[in-house]
Simulated scan of single mutants.
Amino acid sequence: MRPAVVWMIDGNRWSDRELEPWLACLSHAEQHRYHRFIRPLRQREFLIGRILLRFAVARLTDLAFDDVSVIERKNNSPLPMMRGELHAVPNISLSHSQGWVACAASADMSLGLDIEMRDGSRDLIALSQSVFSASENNWLSVHSGAARVSAFYALWSAKEALYKFMSNADILTNNEAIQPEMIGDGGKLSSGHGWYLKELAHPLLSVILCAAQPLNAVIFVELTRDSPFDWTQQACREMGPTALVEKNGIR
């Protein structure tokens, strides 16, 4: 089985003017949705996410960037398509937070990815009491200061990644929201019935990937270049054409 790949990029590096030409890469349906977003930050994340999705699929299938198109699906994740149907459709999961955008891709299994910017200025106690269970809040209460911030977002991201995975794998009933219990035996769970979590180390973000099988090998690359062409050059330089090893301090 080939490893999952997670690509991440800081979308705050570009101005709106610099990103505007990228709109030409989107379909009419995607452009329509882009213009419906009211918040400029959400427009930015959507645009970068759709470009990153195309890049991730092209890398996974050894196709050209322009050979990948995207079908909009109401109340569901976007569906990547390859021109000429030369390859099976990869499994993808997108996530964004405060301008950062990430895309997980796999040729073999459904995925759920969540990234969250760790923001200690929020009222995390009040927020946790409204979204977490009693046992989850009890576990969180033993942490303080910066450790509580990290623990909160790790738990939040784990629940979000699991929900996305179950949605992508068509496990949810009527697409209803679920709040799975993530605490057991005094600690945060890393697996459950039919799912496994992997935490990927990042200095600013909580990054959690979920799949139906243990994620023993994950490629995690933070892109630092300016365009999909440059991203390809960076990927080839850092990873080689067929890299199957862990990167960037995954734990």
Rank of each mutant, 00 (worst) to 15 (best):
W14A: 00
S15I: 01
R17M: 01
E18W: 03
W22N: 03
W22R: 02
L23E: 07
Y34A: 04
I38S: 11
R39H: 15
R44G: 07
L47D: 04
I51F: 11
F55R: 08
A58F: 05
D62K: 15
S77R: 12
S77T: 06
P78M: 03
G84H: 03
G84Q: 07
N91S: 10
I92F: 00
A102P: 01
C103N: 03
S106W: 04
A107E: 11
L111W: 05
L113E: 10
L113F: 00
A126P: 02
A126L: 04
S130E: 15
A151H: 08
F152N: 05
Y153I: 07
K159P: 02
L162K: 09
D170Q: 14
L172I: 06
N175M: 11
E176A: 15
A177D: 14
I183Y: 08
G184A: 13
K188I: 15
K188C: 10
S191K: 06
H193R: 14
Y196C: 11
Y196E: 09
I208N: 07
I208K: 04
I208L: 02
C210H: 09
I219P: 01
F220P: 06
C236K: 05
E238T: 11
P241E: 12
P241M: 07
L244Q: 09
V245R: 07
G249E: 09
I250H: 03
